[in-house]
Design a protein around this nucleic acid. Structure first.
Length: 245
DNA sequence: CCAGACGTTGTT
DNA sequence: GTCTGG
DNA sequence: CCAGACGTTGTT
DNA sequence: GTCTGG
C-alpha cells in the first residue's frame, strides 16, 4: 500500500522532471498523509499541469466527502472494473510526484518505518487516478478534485517490508499513462507492474514519522542500527538508461 | 422492483 | 451514476 | 499508514 | 475493538 509519502524536491526540478511549463507552487513536504492536499500531474487540453488535490478519491456520485479518507489506494489489478474508479481509470489518470514513500514493517509487536526512494534521487512518478466532485446539496458549490494511489504486488526489495507497494511509472511510459484520449483499460494495464527492484533503495527511519502531524527532515533521517541494513536489491547494478531521463 | 453499496489495508 | 443482492 | 476518539442535549 | 480524521 502507500499511505504516506514525501515530496521535498525543489519546484524547478519537479517541473523539469515532469516536463511542466511552470514550477509548481509547493513547499517541501516530508510527511504527506491521506486527506491532505498533494501535487498531482495531469494532462489538460493537451498540456501537462501540476495541481493540488485532496488525497482520498471522492466519486462524483458521492453525497458527501466522508468516503474521502477510505479511498486512498486502489488495487491496480482491479481498479478499472470498480464502480468507484472505473470512470477515472478511463479518463482521469494522473501521476503523483514523490521524493519517496513510507512503509511500516510489522516486527512481532512492533512496527518500524522505512523510507523508500529512487536510487537515482530523481522524483518518482506514482500512478494515480483523480476525480471531480461537487456537493449536490449546494448549488454552485466549488469543484473538489481528489486522487487515489494505485498499488500492486511488491518487488523483491519491498517484499521484505510489505506485501503491497505503489505503482511507479517509467518516464518513457508517462505520456501514454496520462493521455486522456486513451480510454481502453487494456491499453495501459501493462504499465501497472511492480517497479524493478534496482530502481529503489530503502532504509529505516525513526518513529517520528508515525504521527501524521509531524513534519520536517527528521521524518527521513536514517535511524537505528538497521540503517546499516540499507537495502539495495542489486548492489552496484546500473540504473537502466530509460529511467528518469 | 427497491435498497444499499460503491474501497483498501491489515488482522483474526 | 450504476451495479449487486434480496 | 498512524493517532485519537469512541456522546447527546439544547442553544446559538 | 472499530471508526474517523489527518
Amino acid at each position: 500500500m502507500c499511505s504516506r509519502f514525501a515530496l521535498t524536491t525543489p519546484p524547478e526540478l519537479i517541473a523539469s522532471a515532469f516536463r511542466l511549463s511552470d514550477p509548481p507552487v509547493v513547499r517541501p513536504r516530508y510527511n504527506i498523509a491521506p486527506t491532505q492536499d498533494a501535487l498531482v500531474v495531469r494532462v489538460m487540453d493537451g498540456d501537462r499541469e501540476g495541481e493540488l488535490m485532496h488525497w482520498g478519491l471522492i466519486p462524483f456520485w458521492s453525497r458527501d466527502t466522508s468516503i474521502n479518507a477510505r479511498l486512498v489506494n486502489a488495487r491496480a489489478e482491479t481498479a478499472s472494473g470498480r464502480t468507484a474508479f472505473r470512470n477515472a481509470f478511463r479518463k482521469r489518470r494522473c501521476l503523483i510526484p514523490a521524493s519517496g514513500f513510507f512503509e511500516w514493517r510489522r516486527e512481532d509487536r512492533h512496527k518500524r518505518a522505512f523510507f523508500i526512494r529512487p536510487i537515482s534521487r530523481q522524483p518518482m512518478a506514482i500512478a494515480g487516478l483523480y476525480e471531480e466532485w461537487r456537493d449536490p446539496d449546494r448549488p454552485g458549490a466549488p469543484l473538489v478534485e481528489s486522487f487515489t494511489i494505485l498499488t500492486t504486488e511488491p518487488n523483491v526489495l519491498m517484499r521484505d517490508i510489505h506485501h503491497r507497494m505503489p505503482v511507479l511509472i517509467d518516464p518513457v511510459e508517462q505520456d501514454l499513462w496520462l493521455d486522456p484520449d486513451v480510454t481502453e483499460p487494456e491499453m495501459v494495464h501493462h504499465l501497472l507492474r511492480p517497479t524493478p527492484s534496482d530502481w529503489l533503495e530503502a532504509y529505516c527511519v525513526s518513529s517520528y514519522v508515525d504521527n501524521p502531524a509531524h513534519e520536517g527532515p527528521e521524518c527521513v533521517h536514517p535511524m537505528g542500527p538497521s540503517c546499516i541494513e540499507e537495502r539495495r536489491a542489486a548492489e552496484g547494478s546500473q540504473i537502466p538508461d530509460s529511467l528518469w531521463g
